[in-house]
Design a protein around this nucleic acid. Structure first.
Lengths: 167, 167
DNA sequence: GAAAATTATGTGACTTGTCACGCATTATCT
DNA sequence: AGATAATGCGTGACAAGTCACATAATTTTC
């Protein structure tokens, strides 16, 4: 792909260097790679999707939950949770019951089979979390999380702040 | 949502605190929020999708590019680029021509209308990038990027490293 | 007690993204 | 020169995710 002389960096290479310095590009790439890796680990171990794993993990950690609570913990739209659950119930991983005091609610509980599936995946996913943790000292981890805090302040701004025409 | 006594933190609340300390959960949430915000900014300004914006931005910065090069810069599968381009050509934003020396290749060029669309969006997207930049000192930014480097070392490991049964 | 407002969930329709396969073209090997 | 391998792209089929609307149940208001 020779565009400039052989000894100079091409515009393409220069662009890649630029993007290495872009927080947005780096955040996307890193979290995208994390997601793909997680999907593959779960696929190889148990055939679960990331959403299914998160549902199982959250139910194991917290106990019975409502659909909207699961969606809040996982950070996804509740329609995605709502769609995932019937197949999980059919697979015997969870039970779905109507709320005793509020019949609008669906209460999701982990079954023994669900606990088995949890056990199947948690060691691998825990090793991955441990590896990520070990890449940082405790102090660095705090700092990394504080950087993410600051980044989130920016990306949680309403889009109108940026899209509106400015002087 | 009273589960424990009113003065104690619920398991649900405790779980949320746990997830605040999880690099993976935080990376997903932060990059997801960034993506949604970007989508909305672009939607409000120009109706472009994120992929379309990135194509225009990369062509503006680098000059004519092949489909595989665009996919590499953006960090997505080339089928996504391949699918986005016909509509962009139809909208007059890019031209598509076969490679002069390799007829397999498609060379993508930005048109004047594409440059206009670039101009329409770049100020807003640049403000967002500037705001993110301003949240950090130059030193902190270097550190943040080095943390992302380390995180990527972990998530770029083959999934078999984690999914394989271990002693 | 009835009406209106709000809430919790389910689903239609769509967008975004991935993987595998096929076709055409080019490069390599003999 | 012909056969084989590799490459670049297009597309089928599917998965993951979002948004809006509808329905049912509960809460609030009068």
């Amino acid at each position: 792909m020779a565009r400039d002389t052989e000894t100079e960096m091409t515009a393409f290479e220069a662009r890649k260097v630029d993007l290495e310095r872009s927080i947005f590009a780096r955040m996307f790439r890193a979290s995208h790679a994390a997601r793909k890796q997680g999907q593959k680990i779960l696929q190889q171990i148990s055939g679960l999707s990331v959403v299914e794993w998160r549902i199982i993990w959250d139910l194991h950690e917290v106990g019975p939950l409502r659909i909207s609570e699961l969606a809040e913990l996982i950070g996804i739209d509740r329609s995605l949770v709502s769609r995932a659950l019937p197949a999980m119930e059919k697979a015997g991983l969870v039970t779905l019951t109507r709320g005793a005091s509020d019949a609008r609610q669906v209460i999701v509980r982990l079954t023994d089979a669900g606990e088995d599936r949890y056990a199947q995946c948690t060691a691998a996913m825990g090793r991955r979390r441990a590896d990520a943790q070990k890449a940082f000292t405790a102090e660095e981890l705090d700092l990394f999380l504080s950087f993410l805090d600051r980044f989130e302040v920016v990306v949680d701004q309403p889009p109108e702040l940026y899209s509106r025409i400015r002087e």
